[in-house]
């Protein structure tokens, strides 16, 4: 039964997940294409200097900041929007399995896909960074991009909440809450500036993973 549910989720999101993964890899590739180009056209030492002392943030190239957000939004919509068409999710709720557990499995699968794609991007980013930069610059860059990936998970959880919410008025209000909360992860900041906020942002991200239960509950209770 659980395998079937997971397979159903995979069928819904597979193309979006593949496109997001490909987009992520392309963007990371493009960042380092730019780095390689800049290394060729200016002295390496000046490039390092710009990063260390002039706040040049090479990792912001190609709108990398918004890639996890867009990917998570696409996957969440692909996964949960079809469930709201003709209230198909009720079919899942009629299965002889725990409803909350079913929602949790759906959410965990989506989150796992996001995690796997993020891991590929981060590994690629770290590997390529280490070719061009010393550990200090790589570490700063990773700390700086970490909130963007956490933001991806937050957007995924909150999009699921909004899409599964049965009442439009509340959808709009949840959207407003999302609009107040998501920017906390996307502040413009110097390299490594996010380091003190990361633990709490991570806790918020993990806590929000159960957001889906709320609108799922309202949906199955027939709130209109």
């Amino acid at each position: 039964m659980w395998k079937s549910i997971i397979y159903k989720e995979w069928l819904k999101i597979r193309w979006f997940a593949i496109i997001y993964a490909a987009l992520g890899i392309l963007v990371v590739g493009n960042i380092f294409l730019k780095v390689q180009h800049d290394f060729e056209f200016s002295q390496e030492a000046y490039y390092w200097y710009s990063i260390l002392f002039n706040q040049y943030r090479f990792y912001e190239y190609s709108l990398f900041k918004f890639v996890p957000l867009i990917g998570a939004l696409a996957i969440a919509l692909a996964q949960y929007f079809p469930e709201t068409v003709n209230k198909r999710i009720k079919l899942t709720f009629h299965l002889p399995i725990n409803e909350n557990k079913a929602l949790m499995v759906m959410m965990l699968f989506g989150a796992f896909c996001l995690f796997a794609i993020a891991a590929v991007q981060l590994l690629l980013f770290t590997g390529l960074s280490l070719v061009y930069f010393p550990a200090e610059i790589v570490q700063s860059a990773l700390i700086s991009i970490a909130p963007w990936f956490l933001c991806g998970f937050v957007v995924y959880f909150l999009t699921a909440l909004i899409v599964l919410e049965p009442v439009w008025k509340y959808r709009f209000l949840y959207l407003l809450v999302t609009a107040t909360f998501v920017p906390l992860y996307l502040q413009t900041a110097a390299a490594r500036a996010y380091s003190p906020a990361l633990p709490l942002l991570s806790v918020f991200t993990v806590l929000l993973s159960v957001a889906l239960w709320f609108s799922g509950y309202r949906f199955r209770k027939g709130e209109m």
Binding site: F181, F204, V210, A211, L212
Partner: peptide, 12 residues
């Protein structure tokens, strides 16, 4: 899950 969402809204 509701209280987590309420908390999130309070923070935001």
């Amino acid at each position: 899950s509701r209280y987590i969402l309420v908390f999130t809204a309070i923070v935001g």
